[in-house]
């Protein structure tokens, strides 16, 4: 069956390996007014600009958003995953979690815009209850963005975690209970430690895409919040500074691939 490898090899080298190399390479060039807007000489190029505090803030901001989103997803999602894993209707419940997962990020954000906008659902509720005469600006804020992030990425946490919880050996919990452990102790000492690989995978699957997210901050977030995904987009499309965008993207690439590779290594095969 080895001859089947040929086309895949060609494709992967051309469309995965080569673009990554080109991306890292373009970061070494300088911006210009030509087409494409690149000029020599090869040097530090865009990487030299990375020390700018603005980019540092964007990186830290993205890290913080990724961490907070992942933590909120874990808080909300762990009991859901446990409930699904213990349910007799597991398959149906999993499907219910998956339908929003695949049903289009844009379309689901439409609803949140409708809820949070000035003339939206929440504001008219506030007005009806005479809590506020003027519309409260809810839409473009960090909190709204986090709601959108958790909403869109929650299934990414639930699916791997539930898979882990469902395969855990229930007899261990039974044994702990028989030996006198209370429900909370059983959870803390047996259920949770056994589910840790699923927790790790779920947190990574949320944090990694969130760290480079562009659409959700753009539609729900505050206008000026610097996040790495938005900064890369703006450097590329607005400023036309390709080396800077490429250097930032290479940094994000390394920041995503290194933890992912480590996680892969730790996972028992």
């Amino acid at each position: 069956m080895r001859w089947l490898l040929g086309p895949s090899w060609v494709w992967l080298l051309l469309f995965v390996a080569a673009p990554a190399a080109i991306l890292a390479g373009i970061g070494l060039l300088n911006p210009a007014d030509t087409v494409p807007p690149l000029a020599g000489p090869i040097g530090l190029g865009g990487y030299g600009g990375l020390a700018d505090p603005f980019y540092l803030r964007a990186c830290l901001g993205s890290l913080a958003v990724a961490a907070v989103t992942a933590a909120l997803c874990l808080l909300l999602g762990y009991p859901m995953a446990l409930a699904i894993a213990r349910s007799a209707r597991r398959r149906l419940l999993l499907l219910l979690v998956m339908v929003p997962f695949w049903s289009g990020i844009l379309l689901r954000l439409i609803a949140w815009i409708g809820i949070f906008r000035d003339e939206g659902l929440l504001n008219s509720a506030l007005r009806a209850l005479h809590l506020s005469a003027e519309p409260v600006p809810l839409l473009h804020s960090d909190a709204t963005m986090l709601v959108g992030m958790v909403y869109c990425y929650l299934p990414f946490l639930i699916l791997p975690l539930e898979a882990r919880l469902a395969t855990a050996d229930r007899r261990l919990e039974q044994a702990a209970a028989d030996l006198g452990a209370g429900p909370w102790q059983v959870f803390r000492r047996v259920t949770f430690p056994l589910s840790l690989p699923g927790v790790r995978a779920g947190l990574a699957l949320v944090a990694i895409p969130v760290s480079g997210e562009y659409v959700i901050p753009e539609l729900l977030g505050a206008a000026g919040t610097p996040l790495i995904g938005r900064v890369i987009w703006d450097e590329f499309f607005q400023s036309g500074d390709w080396p800077q965008a490429a250097a930032l993207a290479t940094t994000l690439l390394a920041g995503v691939l290194l933890p992912a590779a480590l996680l892969q290594r730790r996972r028992p095969r």
Partner: peptide
């Protein structure tokens, strides 16, 4: 990879 990186890298390719 975040979509943004896939898109940017492939465009440059």
């Amino acid at each position: 990879l975040p979509d943004l990186l896939i898109g940017l890298a492939l465009l440059l390719l």
